[in-house]
Simulated scan of single mutants.
Amino acid sequence: MYQRGKTWWCDFATPGGKRVRQSLGTRDRTQAQELYDKLKSERWRVDELGEQPAYTWDEACIRYLREKEGKKSLSDDVTKIKYFTGFFRGRELRSIKRDEVMNAVSKLAHQRGVTAGHNRETGKPVSDATRNRYIAFASTLFRLAANEWEWIPKAPVFKKRKEASRRIRWLKKSEAARLLAELAPHLRPIVQFALATGFRHSNIIGLEWSQVNLVKKMAWIHPDQAKAGEAIGMPLNAPAMEVLISQVGKHPRWVFTYRGEKIKQKAATGFKNALKRAGIENFRFHDLRHTWASWLVQSGVPLHVIQELGGWHSFEMVKRYAHLAPEHLREHVEMIDSQIDSGTNLSQVSLTGTEQQERKKALLGARP
């Protein structure tokens, strides 16, 4: 053992000749000695007795991040790793039980700043959807450790919470007009383009002229830019073309700019203030995509077409909009017409023949 700064490190060779050099993570010599002896003992059992190495939670997270470094949502995974590490730092991966993970998930709360491993006093409980995302991450990590890395004998099975169905938030045409009237000049074309194409915010502010063909009236999103990892080709309608033409000449590369430069982030304050002035509540920029899909559904566009245009990987995602246009169910409902005589009043079906005759006489007698 030796010190580097004030922290103790170890450097030794295993019976198999492999060199182990790592930090012992403590400034206390007694604790360092205990960990050093434990590490040497474990390495001996692995080499001489063929036991499986005792990998830690930390090692699993490091390997996960290394293997998933190209993942688009890796920053979200980092947030989850930071949270769980507050509970499992230094723990052997095989010693972590399902109930411990679920207990950590149950303590999730909305927090300011970086998510910590313990609940804060002012934290509000998060939604079941958020909890399920943390459960899904833990499930993925343990499955990798068991099935691909062979670090643990078996992955625990996690059961997700049942999520409440959420109402799809979309704008009526009159609301959209009010919003557009309140937006700043550099935000208005972005929102107009979102309503016309259903593109996500990141795809809009990152749109380059090389992705647009004004002659063929087409725009496309490359696979590495799409959330589902597949290219999206979008035929441009008249409103989208009008927006693009208004942007021509403002920048040689980027379609949407602010003060001559590429827009780097959401203008959250400007968008929020415009919503407030327009009298629109409970609305996010991403809901413009919901609005686009909702308008198409209400115009009679089939769901499978909307799925392809919007680049949704799963049809289940598009079915959220089906209730907005139930006309496709009408022919099935009207099949009952053939079972009902044209002269039959459904309100009289439960009446006997005599009762129906008496009601008819009463109605005729009441006429002037």
Rank of each mutant, 00 (worst) to 15 (best):
S127W: 07
G123T: 02
V105I: 02
A177M: 06
W170F: 15
I96T: 01
S165D: 04
A104E: 02
R169A: 08
R143F: 09
K154E: 14
P156K: 02
K162L: 08
R166F: 06
A146Y: 01
A146R: 02
T140Y: 07
R133V: 09
R169M: 13
N132W: 13
P125Q: 04
I168R: 14
K159H: 00
E175W: 09
V114G: 05
S106F: 01
A176P: 05
I152F: 05
K159P: 00
T140M: 11
K97W: 00
R94Q: 09
S127V: 12
L171V: 14
V157H: 07
K160M: 15
V126D: 02
V126F: 04
M102V: 06
K173L: 13
E175I: 11
S165T: 13
R166L: 11
A177Y: 05
K162E: 14
S95R: 03
K160G: 15
A155P: 05
A145H: 14
N132T: 09
E100C: 03
S174P: 09
V101W: 04
F142Y: 11
M102I: 01
L144M: 12
I168G: 03
V126E: 05
L179E: 10
H118N: 03
A104G: 04
V101R: 06
N147I: 00
K172D: 15
R167M: 01
I168Q: 15
E175R: 08
N132S: 03
A164H: 10
D99L: 12
A116T: 14
S139Y: 00
S95P: 00
D128E: 13
K154L: 15
A176E: 09
K160A: 14
H118A: 07
F137L: 11
E175D: 13
E121M: 04
L141V: 10
S127Q: 12
S95K: 03
L144T: 03
A145M: 10
I135V: 14
L141N: 05
G113K: 06
L179I: 08
K124M: 11
R131N: 01
W151F: 13
M102R: 01
V114C: 05
W149C: 05
L141F: 08
A129G: 10
V114W: 06
K159S: 03
V157E: 11
L108K: 03
N119V: 12
S106M: 04
F142E: 00
L93S: 04
K173R: 12
S106G: 08
D99T: 05
K162G: 15
L141W: 07
I152E: 07
W170Y: 15
E163V: 13
R167W: 06
A116Q: 13
E175M: 07
A138N: 08
M102S: 00
G117C: 07
A129D: 12
A138M: 10
T130V: 15
E175C: 07
I168F: 13
P156N: 12
T115V: 15
I135S: 04
R133S: 14
V101G: 04
I135Y: 10
F142A: 02
T130N: 11
A104C: 01
T130A: 04
R133C: 08
R120D: 10
E148G: 07
R112V: 11
A129L: 14
L179P: 05
S95H: 04
R143Q: 05
V126M: 06
T130Q: 09
L93W: 08
F158S: 01
A164S: 13
N147Y: 02
